[in-house]
C-alpha cells in the first residue's frame, strides 16, 4: 500500500515538476525556489487529500501550479493588485497556518523535540497528521493493542505539551 502511494507520488512529481519549474523560471525564480515551492504545494495538496477537503475542478497539475503561483507571490511579497490571483487563493484553500513564519522559538523547540523524542513525534504524526487509525498505529509501532498505543500517544502528547510549557517559562525568564 505504502509502495503504491510512493509510486503515485513519484508519478505526480515526474509529471508536474517540469511545468512548475518552467512557471517559476518565467517568474524569475531559480531551481531551488521552484523545488521548495513545489514541495510546499504538494504538502498542501496531500494534506487536503488526506482530510477529504480537496475540492478541485482542474487537473492535479493545474492545481499544484496554481498553488505554486500563490506561494511565489506570498514569498516575494509582490503586490497582489499587480498580479491578480482571480480569487485563486480562496478557491485553492491553503491551510491557515501554512504561511505562519517559522518563529525562532518554534524552530528551536522543534529541533529539541526531534532530538529528544523522534519516536514520540512519529507516533503523534501518524495519528494527528496522517490520520491513521490506532489499530494501524499499534501494528506499525509494535504495540500489543490499540489501547496501549492510545495510552502511549497521550503520554507523548503530554511530553510535547510540557516542552511547550517549559519553553514558554524559559522565554518569560529571559525576557
Amino acid at each position: 500500500m505504502q509502495e503504491k502511494e510512493a509510486q503515485w507520488l513519484t508519478n505526480i512529481y515526474r509529471d508536474t515538476f517540469p511545468q512548475v519549474a518552467a512557471t517559476v523560471h518565467r517568474l524569475g525564480g531559480n531551481l531551488d525556489t521552484a523545488r521548495d515551492l513545489f514541495h510546499d504545494a504538494l504538502v498542501i495538496y496531500l494534506e487536503k487529500r488526506r482530510n477529504n477537503t480537496l475540492d478541485i475542478r482542474v487537473s492535479v497539475k493545474a492545481y499544484l501550479t496554481g498553488i505554486v503561483k500563490i506561494l511565489w507571490v506570498r514569498k516575494f511579497k509582490q503586490d497582489s493588485r499587480q498580479r491578480p490571483l482571480d480569487n485563486m487563493e480562496e478557491q485553492l484553500g491553503i491551510p491557515e497556518d501554512f504561511y505562519a513564519p517559522a518563529p525562532e522559538r518554534a524552530t528551536r523547540l522543534l529541533h529539541y523535540l526531534q532530538a529528544a523524542g523522534r519516536k514520540c513525534l512519529q507516533l503523534l504524526q501518524a495519528f494527528y497528521y496522517e490520520q491513521r487509525s490506532m489499530q494501524e498505529i499499534a501494528r506499525q509501532f509494535h504495540f500489543r493493542t490499540a489501547r496501549s498505543a492510545t495510552v502511549q500517544k497521550y503520554k507523548c502528547l503530554e511530553k510535547v505539551r510540557e516542552q511547550v510549557k517549559n519553553a514558554e517559562k524559559y522565554e518569560e525568564a529571559i525576557a
Binding site: L9, T10, Y13, R14, F17, R35, F38, H39, D40, L42, V43, L46, D97, A102, A106, L109, L110, L113, Q114, L121, L124, Q125, Y128, Y129, E130, L157, V160, R161, Q163, V164, K165, E168
Partner: peptide, 29 residues
C-alpha cells in the same frame, strides 16, 4: 493552550518530514 501549540508543532514536524520525502523523490528522479 499548550496542547494546541503541541498540535501545531506536530503538524510542523510532519510537514518537514513530508518535505524530506519529496526531496528524496527529486534526488531519485
Amino acid at each position: 493552550a499548550h496542547q494546541l501549540q503541541a498540535h501545531a508543532l506536530v503538524r510542523r514536524f510532519a510537514r518537514e518530514a513530508q518535505r524530506e520525502k519529496l526531496a528524496a523523490i527529486y534526488a531519485r528522479l
